[in-house]
Design a binder for these strands. Structure first.
Lengths: 251, 251
DNA sequence: CGGAACGTTGAGGAGAATCAATTATAGTGG
DNA sequence: CCACTATAATTGATTCTCCTCAACGTTCCG
């Protein structure tokens, strides 16, 4: 089980990876009041285009951002780990830019926009950090466009496995050699722009090559360097190379 | 020809579409000092991953954001119109999250980060507006992942033509029935995740169906409703439905 | 224990890529 | 102004990746 305080700590830590925060700013984040929600697997947490007055902080589980076609077909456009604020952007743009769906059993802490806005208004350094995390989201999106637009099934699959490995390590829910990956192959297909059948075949190839495997909710990487090469993976796009320049001077 | 003042006016107008700005905030934006650059077609303006200390405001022309594979293959992940700040995100994250390339002859106004940061620090309302525009970028990225991941060639092509139509109208460089589109079919292919050959065939189909055409630097839409239907297009993702909630109280 | 969801595998087909050649267009310098 | 060149658009033929449809095996959970 995870509680609000621990979730907020993870969130603050996530922000700190990309932004410099003062102690008082950090404390202001930890003082947020949330509403906890336990959500079963494969439920919509926020519907595509829905107007919301809170943001979803992931406590446990794996959350997918998705876009939806008029015929109901879905594309997962990003994944959120524990400690991530899945729809931070709705703070400044309340018509959620994407839907959120639980890929497994998930704990969500709803953080009211009222509080986040007050926090941002009174602590410009926090606002800056939130802005920067939205920028990181954008960078990851851009790489995902590249992934589904210009790489073949093998490469896409490897790329996603690499990203998930690094992020699992960061979120401290595994390491790049072996990490929990509690999502179905169908969801993996929605994230890579493939079909579930083809994901299955591609994973089989990676297994047969002794590069990586993914089953029963766990990914195992046998040969990291080859996985990186196959996936054309360069982690720079996740903006994890240390904090950016502080714009607002500490109070 | 376009001068710095006009470009900044367009930029301020673009921000105003999504955020409420006070007169003094607007004036602070118009007071920015820039360096102008005229750039020929098909040149890299900012290389993928390059560290920059300025952001690129598009004055004239069409700019593509791109990601690049290790083998040099490119995917255009977004397009920037006159009045757009193409790499606004580098203000808070100076290792540019994407490369910028000119799709035709382009006028760029370089805005030093030093100035933008000072502007953001002294005018929190402006910082908020910049943040919100970065969020809009993210929303558009997400839709692009959907586009290249889950739509077929016909639908992708139509969707992009729709987006470009709406944005041309907004940028006042055309209307949705007929607008300048000075990019090659090759660039169009890089934006849709297709090959130039297949883009050509798909455009021919749209032409034969009397839905839309695109040649000699101009797109013409004969049947907007059908184009929207084919492209599975819903403009909400561009966040152009009026300004978001103001977080920071005006000074 | 039974059912539902998920994973696996095969066969066949569709859509887009690739390869290749030709035509159009725009830009360049004589 | 026109030849010359490079770039872009167009079309055909062929190949291949991935999708679709279908069946069966496995795992998980009530």
């Amino acid at each position: 089980m995870i509680d609000q305080h621990l979730a907020l700590q993870k969130f603050a830590a996530r922000l700190t990876a990309r932004s410099v925060l003062t102690t008082s700013e950090r404390n202001a984040i930890l003082a947020l009041k949330t509403e906890v929600r336990i959500i079963a697997a494969h439920r919509d947490i926020v519907r595509f285009g829905e107007r919301v007055d809170y943001s979803c902080l992931v406590g446990e589980g794996l959350v997918g951002r998705y876009a939806e076609g008029l015929d109901g077909r879905r594309q997962i456009t990003g994944l959120c780990f524990p400690g991530d604020m899945a729809d931070l952007s709705s703070v400044v743009s309340p018509n959620s830019a994407w839907g959120l769906t639980s890929l497994n059993r998930t704990t969500i802490f709803r953080v009211p926009h009222v509080q986040l806005r007050k926090l941002a208004a009174t602590h410009p350094g926090v606002a800056e950090a939130l802005w920067r995390d939205c920028v990181a989201d954008g960078s990851i999106f851009s790489e995902w466009v590249m992934n589904v637009g210009r790489r073949d099934a093998m490469s896409r699959t490897a790329h996603l496995l690499c990203e998930l490995a690094i992020r699992s390590e960061r979120a401290e829910v595994g390491n790049r050699t072996s990490y929990a990956l509690q999502m179905t192959q169908g969801a993996f297909a929605d994230a890579t722009g493939l079909t579930a059948v083809h994901v299955n075949r591609t994973l089989k190839q990676l297994r047969d090559l002794s590069v990586a495997s993914f089953n029963r909710g766990r990914a195992t990487v046998y040969n990291w360097d080859r996985l990186v090469a196959i996936g054309d993976f360069d982690p720079g796009y996740m903006l994890l190379d240390g904090p950016g320049p502080r714009i607002v001077q500490p109070a």
